[in-house]
Simulated assay, not measured.
Amino acid sequence: MTLQQQLHELAEQRSEISVTLSFNTHRTHPDSAQDSIMLKNIVNEAKQSVILQFDKKKAQPILDRLDRLINQVDVRHNLESLHAFVNAESTAIVRSPWSLDKNSITIGERFAIAPLLKMANRNYEYYILVLSKNTTQVFRVIADKVIDEVKNEHFPFENPLFIPEAVRRSDARTVDNHVREYFNHVDKGVVELNKASGMSFLVVSLEENYTVLQQVADRKGIYLGHSAIDYNHVAPHELAKQAWDKVSQIQHQERAQAIEQLMSGVSQGRVLTDLQEIYRASINGNAELLIVHEDFQQAVTKIGEQEIKLIDKKDSSPMDYDIISAIAWNIRSKNGRVIFTQQDQLKDLGNIALLTRY
């Protein structure tokens, strides 16, 4: 299951008791040995909160799943943080290459999916399309690590129209037509993968090949961008590092552009910074672009279908409503954009700002 699919599944789940555990972990031994102790401690803390808030009959399935969670996490595979989502019917575990400002436990009717939204926002999971005029490969990648090579009816693909003979290749028009036909076939395979996974593609190729691909592409938006191929460094792990450097660069530029777009809406009266107003707009579909500072959190209590009450940080508890997750998912599910950033341009408006549709 891809991150996008897992995010959608977790966001749509509703249960009387939904427990989210998020805590920092370690990539390497012996530091990762501490993670087992941390997991036990945070599980015990979560169990105590569940016991205090719910009767035993309702709580027992959750308590049982939390107990089993301790043995389900293999600390040898940990990254910078781990997120566990537990209700009476299911348990999901997601590892992240980004650390947290602090560990947290959230208990409510829905999961606290903000960490997954941040991961999806960073294109944490994507494809590398290695494109040439005679062969094409696709790799599924998480950050800078290759997970596997895609092997299906579309990939890997060798160009059946490739013209190896120098004489025939001298016919520029024939070659150009064949290349376009080949790249069109590649693009159709890319579109199918995107429909199934929701993931985007970073193209590693010669510049001229990327240009032609963009000319024939049906949906240009599913391509994150391009990185020039170095045929001396085409091992999968080398491609992944190269691609992630480029993806990170593209994301930084996109975040800066998004902030500029939002700031331009201030003079039009289309920017909201009040959390109550932002929440209401997210419910009503009047949200085009939400930008949230990476570390911003705000505990609230729901006091109506569209009303919330802010809670001072020192008075917050695991039972408080995860308002950032709720707002971000409301907007994302209604085809709005959500950006998490550490860039300081947002600070002029505060920790959270929304560009409305109208």
Rank of each mutant, 00 (worst) to 15 (best):
Y182A: 01
S170C: 01
E89V: 00
T174K: 13
L100Q: 06
V179Q: 13
N71G: 13
V167Q: 03
D101F: 04
N87V: 07
N159K: 06
V94F: 09
S90Y: 00
A84M: 14
R140P: 00
K195V: 01
E89Y: 02
L79H: 08
T136F: 02
S200M: 07
S197T: 15
Y126P: 05
R76H: 11
L69G: 07
G189E: 09
A112T: 04
F162N: 09
V191E: 12
F183R: 05
K145M: 04
Q72H: 06
G198E: 04
N184C: 05
A112L: 08
N123S: 14
V141M: 10
Q72V: 00
A114Q: 15
L69Y: 10
L193R: 04
H185E: 12
H77C: 08
L79R: 14
V130C: 09
K118P: 01
D74M: 09
V175E: 15
G198N: 06
A88E: 15
S99Y: 03
P156K: 13
N159L: 08
Q137H: 15
D171C: 01
V130P: 02
R168Q: 10
A114C: 06
E192H: 12
V190Y: 01
E165D: 15
E158W: 00
F183T: 03
R169V: 01
K145F: 05
N103W: 02
I93G: 10
V86T: 03
A172L: 14
P115V: 04
D144T: 04
D187K: 07
I93V: 15
S197I: 11
V203N: 03
K151W: 00
R110L: 01
E89L: 03
L82S: 08
M199D: 14
E89N: 14
A112I: 04
A114V: 06
L193F: 05
E192V: 13
N152R: 01
R95K: 14
R180A: 12
V94L: 05
T174F: 03
S81L: 10
E153N: 11
E89I: 00
V73M: 09
K133E: 14
E192C: 04
R168H: 10
R180V: 09
D74C: 07
L202A: 07
F157I: 12
N159A: 07
D187W: 05
P115T: 08
F155N: 05
F155A: 02
T136S: 12
I105Q: 10
I113Y: 06
N121D: 15
A92H: 14
T106V: 10
P156C: 04
F139D: 03
R122L: 11
S170A: 13
V190P: 00
D176I: 04
R76C: 07
R169L: 03
E158V: 02
I70P: 01
S132F: 09
Q137Y: 12
T106R: 15
V203R: 03
D101I: 04
D101E: 12
F162Q: 08
W98V: 12
Y127Q: 10
G189P: 12
S170P: 00
F162M: 05
N103T: 11
L117R: 02
I142C: 05
N134H: 08
G189S: 11
G189R: 10
R169A: 06
P160D: 05
E153Y: 03
F157W: 05
